[in-house]
Nucleic acid binder design. Structure first.
Length: 347
RNA sequence: GGGUAGGUUGAGCAGGUGGUGAGCUCCGCUGACUGUAGAUCAGCCGUCUUUCGACUGUGGGGGUUCGAUUCCCUCCCUGCCCA
């Protein structure tokens, strides 16, 4: 699911999304409730009609903003009080209100309000946020408003195996339509993420419901997660990095702002069939980025979303024909720079 | 021809009225980004050096001075005004 926080996957039209092979997108409770407001979207016929996207939409609950806007909110057992990043006004989000907003938006999948925390915090704080997430999960189920909307629960627990196991058991025991793993890709190591997904996979066992890893991921992360039973992803990376000039290819990542591409007549990825690769050169994109031309953002986003979804299509095919590990190794090799340890300030 | 204001590191500017000018914004170079307060942010951006640091640099030339970006002479270049 490409991320379309504000009722748009930035720089892309619904037509672009369909051409890129997008099946489902993500929208956001927090942002849309502030602007243009959930009530207005409801009056205008719901989120699908509002943004002219007739495919499935999953809406995030605002749980991530509980984490990312830590300096302008306060959390208590009943809910979260935010100060708007737009105008500083105060807003209250409870599990019930998050469900109400998502019912108004009319998304196909609603997420429960959860509390994720920095996994490096002391264990009692991680455990407290997990316990609160569990209580909020039960309240969210009780508050679900419409039968045509699926609701997913969210497993928390940081990178502590025992807490994760406990959370997976608790959330897995509730009658959700799908199970999400939250609180990862927030600074923990790749090994910690993999280990945590192992614990969750073990705890959920043969549970047939769809499993969604929230906020992931990078090309390599998909393999790590699918190996551990994950079915569904959302991530801002393909579109965000595209807007800053980075494109993903079978040969790894390219930064189109680099001077080396100014004279490169080849397409971003010769194997890609997207609009950008079919019609334009790296040199053209490099020029557009330098000139800050708006087309740069669309073409790069079209490419990254297309390429990412094609990667996932190939990943699914590799599961069927047994070539998963070969494909995995190839992507690991191409994107090796990503997993290389970043030089520290003293290095 | 006369007058006047200027000439600072790729560009545009600060600053500097005898003793420390490498400061800003662009441009440029590179990196980062994981449930989007992000078409954003960070580092670098005279030369040498990995760093520390060293050196050079205020249009050219000359003069005064222990010492000149600063004072004097002269030349060159640019804008504006007058003829």
């Amino acid at each position: 699911m490409p991320v379309g926080t504000q009722a748009t996957v930035k720089a892309l039209t619904p037509g672009d999304l369909r051409a890129a092979g997008v099946q489902m997108i993500l929208g956001n409770t927090y942002h849309l409730s502030l602007r243009p407001t959930a009530e207005r979207i409801a009056r205008l016929g719901g989120l699908h009609r509002f943004m002219a996207w007739d495919g499935p939409i999953l809406t995030d609950s605002g749980g991530f903003q509980v984490f990312s806007l830590a300096d302008r909110r306060s959390v208590d057992d009943d809910g979260v009080t935010f100060r708007s990043h737009l105008d500083g006004s105060t807003h209250r989000l409870t599990p019930e209100r998050a469900m109400e907003i998502q019912a108004l938006l009319g998304s196909d999948v609603a997420m429960v309000l959860d509390q994720l925390v920095d996994p490096s915090l002391p264990r009692p704080e991680v455990a407290e946020a997990m316990a609160r997430t569990h209580r909020w999960a039960e309240r969210s189920l009780a508050a679900r408003g419409r039968p045509d909307q699926a609701v997913f629960g969210i497993i928390q627990g940081g990178v502590d195996p025992e807490l994760r196991r406990e959370s997976a058991a608790f959330i897995g025991a509730l009658p959700f339509d799908g199970i999400a793993v939250g609180g990862l890709s927030v600074g923990e190591s790749k090994a910690e993420m993999a280990r945590t997904l192992d614990v969750v996979a073990d705890a959920l066992g043969a549970d047939p419901r769809p499993r969604y890893l929230m906020g992931v991921g990078s090309p390599v992360d998909f393999f790590t997660a699918v190996e551990r039973g994950i079915d569904l992803f959302d991530c801002v990376l393909p579109t965000r990095v595209a807007r800053t000039g980075q494109v993903w290819t079978d040969a790894g990542r390219l930064n189109l702002r680099n001077a080396a591409f100014l004279d490169d007549p080849s397409p971003i990825d010769p194997a890609c069939r997207c609009e950008a690769c079919a019609n334009h050169s790296r040199a053209y994109l490099a020029h557009l980025f330098r000139a800050r031309e708006l087309l740069a953002y669309r073409l790069a986003s079209v490419h990254n979303v297309t390429w990412t979804l094609e990667l996932l299509r190939r990943l699914r095919a590799s599961l069927a024909d047994g070539s998963f590990s070969v494909l995995h190794a190839g992507v690991e090799r191409a994107f090796a720079r990503e997993s290389a340890p970043a030089p520290g300030p003293d290095a």
